[in-house]
Design a protein around this nucleic acid. Structure first.
Lengths: 219, 219
DNA sequence: CGGAGTGATTTA
DNA sequence: TAAATCACTCCG
């Protein structure tokens, strides 16, 4: 049995190991896959998966998954949030306007993208889906904390942590790793839609005020 | 089930289809990618890739990849070979001179860039790598036929066609689509280097003759 | 290991 | 700069 070499990865906490496996055949022969192993032996196949697991305990913004090293200055990937300066806001606003985006469209998209996994059930006085979705979406948008990532492995599968322990609308349940990932995609989309809707509304009001002001001066 | 729309592309042979996919997330969200599908279902992601596959059976000089229509008059892309008039030659010569290009540099670059995939092996009396590379490079430079493109799909993976059926230095082997593309890049670079070397040599001789002529007159 | 989807790089 | 091409990630 040919054991593959697992080397310590010094860019990660003690005990984390890195492995590189070369593809032997097919169209991608010669290319390689990189894996990481937690101190407990759990295998990680991508940076997003690693990020979800490590959460805020480690900042992976500069971590290069392929080499296993930190790359200062090179803010790889997309984590670098595009600043929402007035110019960007205006640009997005008009882009959306030209595309015919209206608040009803945004609402529909939010609700559609927020369709939750079967395992997640609302409880309490109002178990309706929409109420639950709205509550979660609003909470996510108001919070400045990152959505992804838990502090411990145990927390990863504990939705009470993810949704906040004070959340009374959800009862205990279990979710798979994949469900978490898919949900984060949906949350991200929903959050973006909400931001766009709020910005569009804000800018529309500003535009309206400006127009009224001009009309007043000309009267 | 949300099927994506694959429409017949009438600018291509019967059975070819076109698809446009909008990017849904990331920095490039909202942009779109255009793909084509051969009658056998193979996917094509760029005009050069399509061109390699269709070869001389279809003239794509006026084909607009994004719209899928022929655009007469608009000779898109690079097929239009830049003519090597004396002025251009002289300009290129001095550019190279200023950059310190010498024949040894050219040779090194040619051999380095022509490093062949593992699957390609020389055979016969002299299987050395250099001999094989030189033979291929020379043949390519002497030929006026385009390097890219085969007549049939089968030919695409048949190097005997690509290298010319009369080529005795290579035995049968298989190559992937990506290897073909990568090789074409290298061939293009090698070809350009050879052209530059030949031009530099030619112009250097002309300059030397002129100098001698002038010296004779002044003596 | 494949390949859709998206980032990164090159070209016009 | 934007558009086109290429390369890579990431998950099935």
């Amino acid at each position: 049995m040919m054991e593959r070499k697992r080397t310590d990865c010094h860019a990660l906490p003690p005990g984390w190991k890195k492995e590189e496996v070369i593809r032997k055949s097919g169209l991608s022969a010669g290319k390689s896959d990189v894996y990481y192993y937690s101190p407990t032996g759990k295998k990680f196949r991508s940076k997003p998966q690693l990020s979800r697991y490590l959460g805020n305990t480690v900042d992976l913004a500069c971590f290069d998954f392929r080499t296993g090293k930190m790359m200062p200055g090179k803010l790889q990937k997309s984590k670098q949030r595009l600043r929402h300066d007035p110019l960007s806001l205006a640009k997005l606003f008009w882009e959306k306007r030209l595309k015919g985006l209206r608040s009803s469209d945004v609402s529909e998209q939010v609700l559609r993208s927020m369709d939750l996994p079967k395992g997640l059930q609302g409880v309490g006085p109002d178990p309706s889906h929409d109420t639950l979705l709205s509550a979660i979406a609003s909470a996510l948008h108001m919070s400045s904390a990152p959505i992804t990532g838990q502090t411990t492995a145990a927390a990863e599968k504990n939705p009470a942590v993810w949704l906040n322990t004070s959340q009374p609308l959800c009862k205990a349940f279990t979710v798979t790793d994949e469900q978490i990932r898919e949900q984060e995609v949906k949350v991200s989309q929903a959050r973006r839609s909400l931001e766009e809707a709020l910005m569009a509304d804000s800018l529309a009001r500003a535009a309206e005020n400006t127009r009224e002001l001009l009309e007043g001066k000309m009267a």
